[in-house]
Write a protein that binds this DNA or RNA. Structure first.
Lengths: 251, 251
DNA sequence: CAGTGGTCTAGACCACGAA
DNA sequence: TCGTGGTCTAGACCACTGT
């Protein structure tokens, strides 16, 4: 048969059309794209099919649906999170960042702090070089920037380093945890970070106010002293649509 | 009213039940979980509702559906990709990795190599410190490990560095691009990487054989000489379910 | 061949946003 | 109030996996 011979499911073709229209610039960041009713008319399909097409784009993070309003092109305007600042590319002559990021002007607000002492989960004990279920101080909190939740973080420290210090208090004092560790002669000197990606759990979706189609970054950081003794393990979960991680290093 | 007062949509409650069953260990990696027909019977819902519940878990990357067979718990067994090896945590006394990763025993196979010269896209020109649309050599390829596609990569180099060298050939010779650059006295000495997360495009889903609910990592690396002149810009797209990135650095 | 998931239709009622 | 997206039902036919 002539003309279009395409065996992709209808809903995918519709999604592809909308995606192409966005990519071509017909719709830009924040623009309204055709909704369910529009697609039903334009393509002569049932509601469920139009919905499924939009669903594809929503799950890809390309658009967001707003009830009572419409479907809109999503934007990506991330914060830049630097690993080691020391070699920051900003200082180098040439070679500039690809993703423009919001100035990290405002500082983070902290939220929902929880502090307690408990036996270390296996993976935490492993990272800290402790025996399984050894006591650790656990500090959990949420970071927001201009009201928007950006990151969840849980720090674990060996309980003997924290006991009797501000580390075990909700307010850790000026300079935070690392300043308190330094006062004990245990200043962090080396860091190692493991980064991985996944889709959020429902709890995380709620806590970070994530939209469908938004992955999260897990950043697991271990801080070690100059003698390579682990002193802190920090488990962070970042809104994937809000961050770009930057790492600078030498050959 | 007494008993269960829960206003979450039905399909979410069903999804939650299945998720909890997996989390509790009732189903382990690779196990079959209740399918559409099972859920219809157990909960007395329509097919579309059962499907929607499973859809939630599929998009979260918790399970995979296999046509004609069933729905199964997904596993996560990533490769570890090191940034700077120099300070590798493997050498340190304590503090061990959290995610067990497959030994990177086998080496990568390369696939679908394309090499050409073209005007630099704006963001590439920016990263390389070139004028917009300045000529660059573009090297694209796919990496596989034991047949499984793991990563797509596109390198860009200023055309004047590549012209007349093996850099502009499909086979770059022993040591690869960096060895050729070193021969010109332009060995990379500094690296900067930007990492971000997103859901894949349909093309990437195909090229990386990704399942639904699998995000990708974009790793954008700029290599600079000791004099901080950019010599290469490498745009990598990694299967998010296949990798853990590791970065080690000093305070 | 029976059972599974994949696509699609034609309805229904609801919650929410904007005018 | 009207249009939007969100949930749900009760069907249908298809493609694929397994036995």
């Amino acid at each position: 048969m002539p003309t279009s011979e395409n065996d992709a499911p209808l809903y995918r073709e519709i999604a592809e059309d909308v995606r192409a229209a966005i990519a071509s610039g017909r719709f830009s960041d924040g623009d309204r794209v055709p909704g369910e009713n529009d697609l039903m008319k334009q393509y002569g399909v049932a509601r469920a099919t139009a919905r499924q097409a939009l669903s594809v784009l929503i799950d890809e993070g390309v658009v967001v649906a707003i009830r009572g309003s419409g479907v809109y092109v999503r934007t990506f305007r991330p914060l830049r999170r630097h690993g080691p600042r020391r070699l920051s590319r900003d200082l180098w002559g040439a070679g500039r960042a690809v993703w423009q990021a919001d100035a990290a002007g405002g500082s983070f607000e902290t939220d929902g702090i929880e502090v307690d002492t408990a036996p270390a989960p296996a993976y935490v004990a492993r990272a800290l070089g402790l025996d399984d279920r050894a006591p650790v101080v656990r500090r959990h909190r949420r970071y927001r920037l201009a009201q928007r939740p950006m990151q969840l973080a849980t720090s674990y420290l060996p309980a003997d380093l924290a006991r009797g210090t501000a580390i075990a208090e909700p307010d850790t004092g000026p300079g935070g945890i690392y300043a308190r560790l330094a006062e004990q002669g245990r200043a962090p000197a080396h860091f190692t970070e493991e980064v991985r990606v996944r889709m959020p759990t429902p709890d995380e979706s709620r806590a970070l106010a994530l939209q469908r189609g938004t992955p999260v970054l897990d950043v697991l950081r271990t801080a070690l002293t100059a003698e390579h003794t682990p002193v802190e393990f920090n488990e962070m979960t970042l809104d994937g649509s809000a961050y770009v991680l930057q790492y600078d290093f030498d050959a």
